[in-house]
Nucleic acid binder design. Structure first.
Length: 265
DNA sequence: ATGGTTGAATGTCAA
């Protein structure tokens, strides 16, 4: 059975609903992970997803952040927060299990500026995630950690690595923090399939014609454990939604797996 | 140059 997962930072789900629903209908992922839904759960547009055959699991808050899992099959289990004893005040994590795979969907803090306390919080969020993976999972399980990580891992992943070195999103400390969580047991699936390609997932609204000039960043990632990396067939960025009218500043990333080849365990 | 645009909410913050 071919099984498809996608991730999309929508930058306001209600503003982006036509683009998201059209994309879902055309691309038919088994699970779509959303970030920056920017709506409280009572305002979430559940019917739009139900109408196209999907189950929705959302964790929102007023105005900011917000994550959701949109799944063809009902999820067997859902965790809408870390539940690790620390405050879960911001809606930045939702995890769900389906077809024996745990999907961890995160919206990592952007960090604002390397001198801002929010940047320290961003680094702390990666630490917290690594501890959480340690306690809840093992690297030999089939896990997918995906979402907007707000970090470009390497020089190839930003439009101007010399100029952007030290900027938020491409600061050595956050690149290290992302790498340390990945070192727990994750493979950057886009890079597995495209070791040399420069392909961005985000183009800033504030930079004039950034998309047309391809001045972007690869901030959205599908990280998988080894058992899933072995059965992955494809991993691609779909740039088309970024070129539509009223786009998000991000565009979807997706991957396909052959689950029959996955070792039952 | 320290800008620019967008969403949610309707102040202005966050990105």
């Amino acid at each position: 059975m071919l099984w498809k997962i996608a991730t999309f930072n929508v930058n306001g789900l209600r503003a982006r609903l036509p683009i998201v629903v059209d994309w879902l209908k055309k691309q038919q992922p088994d699970v779509l992970c959303l970030q920056e839904t920017k709506c409280q759960d009572q305002d979430f547009p559940y019917p739009a997803f139900q109408e196209v055959g999907y189950h929705t699991y959302a964790r929102g808050e007023k105005s900011f952040n917000g994550v959701a899992l949109i799944s063809k099959a009902p999820l067997a289990e859902v965790w809408p927060e870390f539940g690790d004893g620390l405050p879960d005040s911001e809606a930045r994590l939702i995890a769900g299990q389906v077809s024996g795979i745990w999907i961890i969907n995160t919206y990592i803090p952007q960090g604002r500026h390397p001198q801002d306390p929010a940047f320290t919080d961003k680094l702390g969020f990666f630490d917290r995630l690594r501890n959480w993976f340690n306690r809840r999972f093992r690297p030999d399980q089939p896990l997918i950690w995906t979402g907007d990580m707000n970090v470009a891992p390497d020089k190839l992943d930003v439009y101007d690595p010399e100029h952007l070195d030290g900027a938020v999103g491409f600061h050595p400390l956050e690149r290290q923090a992302l790498a340390e969580v990945a070192a727990w047991g994750f493979i950057d699936l886009y890079r597995q399939f495209h070791p040399q390609d420069q392909q961005f997932t985000f183009w800033d609204y504030r930079l004039a014609k950034s998309f047309a000039r391809n001045l972007g960043w690869r901030l959205d990632h599908i990280m998988v454990t080894a058992s899933l990396a072995q059965v992955a067939k494809e991993c691609e960025v779909d740039v088309a939604p970024r070129g539509l009218a009223k786009p998000s500043d991000h565009t979807p990333l997706w991957a396909v797996f052959e689950l029959e080849q996955l070792d039952p365990d």
